[in-house]
């Protein structure tokens, strides 16, 4: 295992006019490992991803890749540096073929200039091969429409695409939150395959169970700060859930609900 993290964020803060969205965030993602970023809605997960992937520039702090300080002046720069973000719905066009989706924006070409064209045969072959390598065996023809794939398979398409184009850090933004139970487990398997191939995976989720299933390192965000940072096996699921909900606040809330229930009981008997 390398000791230098593939991607490291040091004391990152991000301020928007009037709002401090991120405060002093430090985290590391290692090649061949999964870093889970957990947090409730509004905890600052999406601001953090956007800062990581070059959409926002941090107000202070440093981002390092392979130990070198980098500055991204846009998502394209981040992508060139090997950071690839896959969003919730996979970013595929349903009425286009699997292969055309796979190579969208980076199409293989053949022929001389006035007759230069999309090399569909090559695209089909590579797309099918890469999808099979990600364990999607049902796709045997690159001409199949992406819209005929399941949600999990579409995620696989995006992940396979990112890896084919040399992603070294794979940022998965809530990949399981729109999926059913079975498809979620497919996606979790994809995460395992991606890290087996030496990619540093950053897995953003608010599902503690999904995180614990595949994570090696965990960072819990609350109100733009790192509330906890630990490695696999250090916390149980219920500890993690309590952390995400803000610890004591979660217990307070349980008490409040209990009090409401009791008040209702009293009202009914009165």
């Amino acid at each position: 295992m390398t000791t230098v993290p593939k991607l490291e964020m040091r004391h990152i803060s991000k301020t928007f006019p009037g709002v401090r969205a991120l405060e002093d965030i430090s985290l590391s993602a290692y090649a061949g490992e999964t870093l889970c970023l957990l947090g409730d809605n509004g905890a600052g997960k999406s601001t953090l991803i956007k800062t990581m992937s070059g959409v926002h520039t941090p107000s202070s702090g440093e981002i390092l890749i392979d130990g070198e300080v980098v500055r991204f002046d846009g998502p394209h720069a981040a992508r060139t540096a090997g950071l690839s973000t896959v969003h919730q719905y996979g970013g595929t066009v349903p009425l286009m073929s699997v292969a055309r989706n796979f190579f969208l924006g980076a199409e293989p070409k053949k022929g001389v200039v006035p007759f230069r064209r999309f090399d569909e045969r090559t695209a089909n072959t590579i797309a099918v091969r890469e999808l099979q390598a990600m364990g999607i065996r049902r796709v045997t023809d690159g001409r199949q429409l992406a819209g005929t794939l399941s949600g999990g398979e579409r995620q696989a398409l995006s992940i396979a695409r990112a890896m084919h184009f040399g992603a070294q850090v794979l940022i998965l933004d809530e990949p399981t939150s729109a999926l059913g139970v079975k498809e979620s487990s497919e996606t979790l398997k994809l995460i395992m395959r991606a890290k087996d191939r030496g990619v540093a995976v950053v897995f953003i989720t608010h599902n503690a169970q999904h995180a614990l299933a595949v994570g090696d390192r965990f960072v819990v965000l609350i109100q733009g700060r790192v509330a906890a940072s630990f490695t696999r096996g250090e916390k149980t699921k219920s500890e993690l859930l309590n952390l995400m909900a803000g610890g004591e606040e979660f217990e307070d809330m349980e008490e409040e609900i209990e009090a409401m229930r009791r008040a209702k009981e009293v009202a009914r008997h009165a």
Partner: peptide, 16 residues
């Protein structure tokens, strides 16, 4: 390819 992608899902086209 781009023509279909732009009309099919403009966000996917842009991010790619």
């Amino acid at each position: 390819n781009w023509t279909y992608a732009v009309g099919g899902d403009i966000d996917a086209a842009t991010t790619n």
